[in-house]
Design a protein around this nucleic acid. Structure first.
Lengths: 276, 276
DNA sequence: TTGCTCCTCACGTCACGTGAGGTGGC
DNA sequence: TTGCTCCTCACGTCACGTGAGGTGGC
């Protein structure tokens, strides 16, 4: 028989853990001295302690460990638990790799620029949304080309929705689509009406996307750096851009320097990012 | 300005999280209506929320996130934090891989044997220990060869320690060492005296080892299966055996069927276990 | 009037670590 | 008497999730 301290040393666990397992009924001492409450453990109990430690190390909760040890789960259920754990561990390893990549990218940026980036890229699942939109075309993605097109498009869209008595239910968005002779530009406003063409606009459902997003402050004329930053982040963090970017106008007061815009770039994970 | 629910949807976080960040002073709403307590967030605050999410996703605690955002840490310290995180993430990925290997080994055992193994292998760091020992030789590792040697060795050792007035301070151990003409067998008992030779025994320090351990119940004549199990576990879990095994006699009453013995096999990690 | 959103507590989570305050045997 | 080990509470950890119980504007 071992005193709790000796048994703890033998099993490489803390005394506190043995008391905890006792309290949970996971590992009850072979004997408890009634007058003092002193716990004594039999050498043979080391097997059970080892099983507890081993199952815990696999990532099971103590509740699950107890159920397995007391044979409350059948062999099939046990296999199911192990397969579930396997899947969880795969996800966990994947997540650790992704974070590692991200930390390394950040270290590289600090190394190169001497400071943290001012804005942060965040990956978001963007749900489908119904919008009314009008479409124009610009010669290129540059703001000098886009600016003169997008402004009038929104003005037209607003007045036509107004004329049709349709209310908008969210922030305006610009969507960019590559085309043979330049860039198709969609000015879009969320609405809650049926699909189909209106007079001077169309009602469509934008598909849900996974996107890397970045908040830009100020006029879109100054957004080029942010767009580049977004592109670099996507490459450095194991993603691939799908093009067809969106911009969400979170705030657009008259003073364009006070604008707040969320840039959204649809992405997919690059197959097997690879470690290091 | 956004109500808390709208801002939460925008940032893909829960309302509860925004309140939590407010309570911590991490992200205070641009305005709080004094009469109702209603929170309002400015669009521009989305940047800060994104930074919080991004840093949190790297694995920093909210306390650390706050220190970074409020520039309480310099660039050097920040680099230090990121490098530390990188090391932690490498360890984490490694641990996830090791657990994955372990879960898969267990699934394979269940597949082959239709049940969980009765005893569990546990890896332990075994500290250095001073022992008095006598040495004999056996023809092989088989219990038929070992048994007749080890028993008398312990009897001799005990009586000689007794004669020398030396007390033992722990359980007896057997250590096995391969030799040209068989196996060297050391019978050892922990003592707290100076190093050097006694009469009929020697006092030496056993080195600390990392070992895979397994508890065997019953006579050592029936331990062969346990020894094999230990060997298979070592291979399946990305380790390499170093030989020179030890046995720790946790309990050895007259009835040998009631013996409890911990088998200890020194190991090292196999370089790059490799995933899957 | 019915929903919907918002508010403030405050408990629960998970496996212990870490005192506080006290006891029993060498 | 001094250490050492043992005991039982009970708070703290970390980032929220989840009610409970209630309010304000359409």
């Amino acid at each position: 028989m071992f005193a709790i301290g000796d048994f703890a040393r033998l099993g490489r666990v803390s005394v506190r853990m043995l008391r905890h397992y006792d309290a949970l009924g996971l590992l009850v001492p072979a004997r408890v001295e009634p007058s003092t409450g002193y716990r004594s453990y039999a050498a043979a109990q080391l097997s059970r302690l080892n099983r507890i430690i081993a199952l815990k190390d696999l990532g099971f909760t103590l509740r699950q460990v107890g159920e397995v040890l007391d044979e409350k789960v059948g062999i099939d259920e046990l296999q199911g638990m192990l397969r579930l754990r396997r899947a969880e561990l795969e996800t966990e390893a994947e997540a650790a790799r992704a974070r590692l990549l991200s930390v390394e990218a950040r270290l590289a940026i600090i190394e190169a620029e001497g400071r943290m980036p001012a804005a942060e890229v965040v990956v978001k699942q963007i749900p489908a949304i119904r919008v009314a939109e009008t479409t124009g075309i610009a010669a290129s993605y540059e703001s000098a080309d886009v600016g003169p097109v997008i402004g009038p498009l929104f003005d037209q869209l607003c007045s036509r929705l107004d004329a049709a008595g349709i209310e908008t239910v969210g922030s305006g968005m610009a969507c960019y689509e590559p085309a043979a002779d330049g860039v198709l530009i969609h000015a879009a406003l969320p609405v809650a009406v049926d699909l189909g063409p209106g007079s001077g606009f169309e009602v469509v459902d934008l598909p849900p996307i996974e996107a890397a997003t970045l908040v830009h402050h100020g006029s879109m004329d100054t957004a080029d750096f942010a767009v580049q930053q977004l592109g670099r982040w996507i490459e450095a963090n194991g993603y691939h851009s799908l093009g067809y970017a969106r911009e969400l106008n979170l705030e657009c007061p008259p003073d364009r320097d006070l604008w707040v815009t969320e840039l959204q770039e649809p992405i997919v994970k690059t197959a097997r990012p690879g470690a290091a």
